[in-house]
Design a protein around this nucleic acid. Sequence first.
RNA 1: GCAGGGGUACCCGAGCGGUCAAAGGGGCAGGGCUUAGGACCCUGUGACGUAGGUCUUCGAGCGUUCAAAUCGCUCCCCCUGCACCA
Length: 941
Amino acid sequence: MTSQTYDYIKIEKKWQKKWYKEKIYEAKKQDKKKFFIHFAYPGVSGYLHVGHMRGFTYCDIISRYKLMTDHEVLFPAGFHASGIPSFGFAKKVERKDPDIIKMLKEYGLKDDFIKKLKDPTKVVEYFGNVYVKDYWKKFGFLIDYSRIMSTISEGYKNFIKWQFHKLNEKHLLIKKPHFAPYCSNCGPVAVDKSETDILKGGNAEILEFTTIKFKLIDGTILPAATLRPETIFGVTNMWVNPNVEYVKAKINDEIWILSKQAYEKIIFQVDSIKLLKEKIKGQDLIGKKCIIPLINREIKILSGPFADPNVASGIVMSVPAHAPYDWIALVESGEDIDPITIIDVKGYGTNPAKEACDALNIKSQTETEKLDQATEEIYKKEFHTGYLNENTGKYAGIKVSDIKDEVKNELIENNQAIIMREFSEEVICRCGRKVIIKQIPDQWFIKYSDGNLTNKSKKHVSNMNISPEDYKNELPGILEWFDDRACIRKGSWLGTEFPFKKDWIIEPISDSTLYPAYYIVSKYINEGKIKPDELTVEFFDYVFIGKGKAKKPIWSIIKNDFDYWYPVDLNLGGKEHKTVHFPVFLMNHVAIMPEEKRPKGIFVHWWVTQKGKEKISKSKGGAEHINEAAIKYGVDAMRLYYSHIGSPFVDIEWDVEAVTKYKNRLANIYKLVYQIKELKDKSNNNLDNWLISIMHRSIKKTKDALENYDLRIATNEIFFECQKNIQWYLNRGGGNKKILNNFLKNWIILMTPIAPHLSEELWMLKGMKNLVSLENYPSFNQEFISEKDEVGEYLLQKVTSDISEILKVTKIQPKKIFIYTSPEWKINIMKKTIDQIDKNTFNIGMIIKDTITDPKLKNNAKEVSQYVGKLQGEIKKLNENDKKRYLTDIKEFTYLEQAKDYLNNIFKCEIMIYSSDSDNIYDPLNKNRFAAPLRPAIYIE
RNA sequence: GCAGGGGUACCCGAGCGGUCAAAGGGGCAGGGCUUAGGACCCUGUGACGUAGGUCUUCGAGCGUUCAAAUCGCUCCCCCUGCACCA
């Protein structure tokens, strides 16, 4: 192994050891500006994958950058251990789930140890360790490891209890009934796409059927369930399935007729319900009459075999003017009933349902596919563009989309309807039972709907620093829409006991809103300087909101810390947090913390997906394991990949080949530094000044980008532009040791936040003794900018590419190349014209006159006027950069003359350079007349 | 349903009124370096062109403008989040 081999494994180990030994990560309160950054702590649900590292890495990059720009940085981390995941994991271990056991064995765990993971707290402990040791430390994160905490620790629980006391004091805890997915065997279950808790039905939505109480003559209730309560005005009859035996139930004081299936669902949703012995055949209801509530019209019950006993109440009201199913059924029934139109919609006449059926040529109730299509079409049209007409009484003229809830609410207030909730598709629990929706009568909520809280939060957002900008604009809407959130639950999971109701546990979103504040305390807990049971309500009142007095000296020490570090400057999290975590993070701070302690910034990043934009999921194959990837590609390569492959605000694909390319790039940089070491010292003023100048441009661009957290732009500048520049310098023949050294040092520092291990290694190679991680980021200095040399190199590149172009087109094998730089008068005119156009004083005649006062140009008047004429249009198209280039004073002839060796080298032939102003020019084809500023004429033999 | 984001050359992806035939990377082709290379360097990669040029392109169609990938409208198509999962 030669010294030039990039042995990243060795390098990583070496520098991590040093960082962690010297504890350079530890945040210390100093007289500097502080920066508090953290990521939304991960849930403890198993091993993480390469996707999770994206956000963590961004956080470390920003944190390292701040550390290098004169900030004292606090970058803590912890685990969100509350909730179902660790509990579920433990359960799986307990029942020896083969996938889980296999996975644990793959990670090298012994049977004895695996057994221990039946205990959820052991699960948390184990994975907490994995996250710290195998992920965060392996990636070189300068997390303050002295503050690591978990949400199921005693101290944290006391903190959460305090939070809920505060919410209660502010009247932000309320009680009301709630409807939640529930398994009669396992308790509450989460219905979501990941299907953690369930076997089937992850895509199910909860549908809210307005169940309207139609009354039979004897007062018995025939409940018709509908998603479109506003159509009640258009009801002409009822549909009852003749083949179904309905049951009767007593709900409060009412007798209801409904399907057996409906009964079994509704018992969980109403307070008082009793099944009666009496049953009734659908057939026996047909022909009877009932009354439409609200409008008190009498209608007939008809036979509707399509009325599905599994859907809602099993009984359907018929709106033939607006529901294709009802229309066709009515036609087929042969009854003499006129549809009632209640909605006016552009593009339809008096009976939209009939028109839609006709358009699709629907003839029978059995054509369900077409009927569904017709239903959807009409529903969409009517909902978005329809208005209720005169048949709807006081609602006439109102938009359908605005009225739905009003009709529903009126019916409910009049005790003429209830809401019945049901899944859009079947949901089956892990245990095999059907998941139902259950009413929880006295559910506690955090009142996020509170107007005052919402408004204050929205106002706070407007002063925050939020990336991306789009999210900042979205947030007020989200806060507005964010509703009360059920905050406690009873069931098998981990979390803090709710202080106001015994045996109930605070749910995991509600216990992770103010938590960055706890990082200030966790350090003292971890170091044994204060005990968990000392963290009383008085303690937190004093430390966090300055209420009361310090009962012990340590209280004021902690408070001092808190006052220095808080608020959070930047909270990073994935896009999944946009509508859940970030809103509650904000609103709880606004509710509880004083104004100066509310968060300053949020950074939302998108995900790493599998090929084909699929979410990486452990259950569905998953991506590479973090530790394997780290060995295969190297940590710095992965860090570079995350920060460069795409904008933080798009999903990126995990692309093994791309990561490999990044790895090679780092190896090249490593080699390049070695190669430069071996160069012979030589100087070239123009070129050397150019390198310094361009270096400072890069410094400026990088810093500007990093200040805005534009990680990708910064990374591009450092790892691609800088490399390109130094490559140009070397290819051009540059070799000034002093300047190269200076360039490299700056370059290495620039790289450090992104590829810290490589940077440390290179820094040492340059003979530096200190840690580059603790260096100061280079600062931009205008003095080092040399416009002249930048323009000179630009000219050279332009000439080179022009010559190449000519060679390519003409296919000439060049023997001699002649270059003619612009005559002085054209340069003067160019400058004058730019100046005058900018000042809006352009006068073509004056410029020509001025120019030909020069006796040498007297005979060239025609050429002069032609040139000026063309210039005008061209200059208007120029941008500021271009203009600046033309206005820069540079002796083109001299510059090119000095770069002759380079041209010589490139084109492998003799190069002759002339100024168009000089007399002895070899120019057989009179090409020099085409010479213009920064665009010399070329002639090739 | 509510809300958000997109469609750019072979692919990924930047650009978001003139600097745009459109950055950067990858792929592909040719050349170089090499014992070899899947490492690295150079060149090319819309079409046409024996002089640095011209022509046609940025989902589709209209429009605004001296000027549009970039702005407006309409349409088509994709993707994502949505609360008791974190």
